[in-house]
């Protein structure tokens, strides 16, 4: 059987992702799951919110990714006094050589006009400044002084936040959180990983990796991701999961009813399918499986649910809720599941 075009593209995508992983691995020790999830978002065309304690390599990961991608990288350090114009840019009066005003304004573009944006410690800025990212993240465009400026593609925002720095931080508004495709939890390294980190970072500085993927490669991956097929039963399963996350839904399990105030919405469902497609692509498949949906459910849904007072008081986490949903919501119709179980 001859290899089809799509199959060849799939193979190329797998090869590209492998190269990217290897490039990142030259700088980042371990954190394979985090790297994979960041790649899901990159390929799906979404943005990532990284949460973890300071010093776990979040910023380094983003910088390394940017270096590997040969894309324009910008970093915005969010502080409480950061203004929206500091992010988007502003028009400034142009001066002539004598220092006199020319009467002409020129746009000074802000850091948002990059392709890989690192929004470091995003929850330290005020909600007003945080929301300056909304238009850019959703529409890939910025409006300054009434003029809309389309951002270069691919546009990829990676934000970090410190969960323990509560003093002087502002929680991200739900609308802002919803714009992130994934919320990735950065775990503490294992002992082996820590040993390797210590060895690697206490000697001579490590060179940044060379770019292994170009803009066109990333755009091709994104296009390929959208071609991944999804069967109706799989889509229905995603829909059932989202529906069951709403506390008022008749299919919601007890933990959802008790622990959540709001569940995931339509954007959550879209993100679930997109992230699943991305995962299938990275695994060299042309179709999404039930297991893909289950694997991406945690990073896709965990920041889209708002806990109730009772849930917070009981210490119910959104991760627990999502795990419960994956356990309770059936993947196949009941009759089929009985046959599958009965023949085992």
């Amino acid at each position: 059987m001859t290899q089809s075009n799509f199959e060849a593209r799939l193979a190329q995508a797998r090869e590209a992702s492998t190269r990217l992983r290897e490039a990142i691995a030259t700088v980042i020790v371990g954190q394979n799951a985090v790297v994979d999830q960041v790649l899901w978002a990159l390929i799906a065309g979404g943005h990532v919110l990284l949460e973890g304690a300071p010093g776990l390599g979040k910023t380094l990961l983003v910088r390394t990714l940017a270096s590997s991608l040969e894309l324009k990288f910008s970093r915005i350090q969010f502080t409480p006094d950061l203004m929206p114009s500091d992010v988007t840019g502003t028009n400034v009066l142009v001066m002539d050589a004598t220092g006199g005003a020319t009467g002409r304004f020129e746009l000074h573009r802000g850091p948002i006009f990059g392709q890989v944006i690192l929004a470091d410690e995003i929850n330290r800025a005020t909600p007003k400044t945080q929301s300056s990212l909304l238009e850019a993240m959703q529409e890939h465009a910025v409006t300054i002084a009434g003029i809309r400026h389309v951002l270069d593609q691919p546009f990829f925002v990676l934000a970090t936040e410190n969960p323990i720095e509560m003093e002087g931080t502002y929680p991200l508004p739900e609308a802002q959180l919803d714009r992130f495709l994934l919320k990735v939890m950065v775990p503490n390294p294992s002992e082996d990983e820590m040993t390797a980190i210590l060895a690697r970072t206490t000697g001579h500085a490590v060179e940044a990796p060379k770019s292994v993927l170009h803009r066109d490669d990333v755009m091709a991956l994104r296009a390929l991701c959208r071609d991944i097929a999804v069967a109706e039963p799989v889509l229905r399963y995603a829909a059932r999961l989202i529906a069951a996350s709403v506390p008022d839904s008749p299919t919601a399990p007890e933990l959802v009813r008790r622990g959540l105030r709001y569940g995931a919405g339509v954007r959550g469902g879209q993100s679930l399918v997109l992230a699943s497609k991305s995962l299938a692509l990275l695994e060299g498949r042309a179709q999404v499986a039930f297991t893909d949906i289950q694997r991406v459910a945690l990073p896709v849904l965990r920041h889209r649910m708002i806990r109730s007072f009772e849930g917070e008081a009981d210490g119910v986490t959104t991760d627990q809720v999502i795990e419960e949903l994956c356990r309770v919501v059936p993947t196949r119709p009941g009759a089929v599941e009985q046959v599958v179980q009965g023949s085992r």
Partner: peptide, 17 residues
């Protein structure tokens, strides 16, 4: 990995199909 379910819904042999 749901290849059979997905293939059953395919009407043509496009790229992914």
């Amino acid at each position: 990995k749901e290849a059979i379910s997905t293939a059953l819904e395919l009407g043509s042999e496009d790229d992914a199909g």
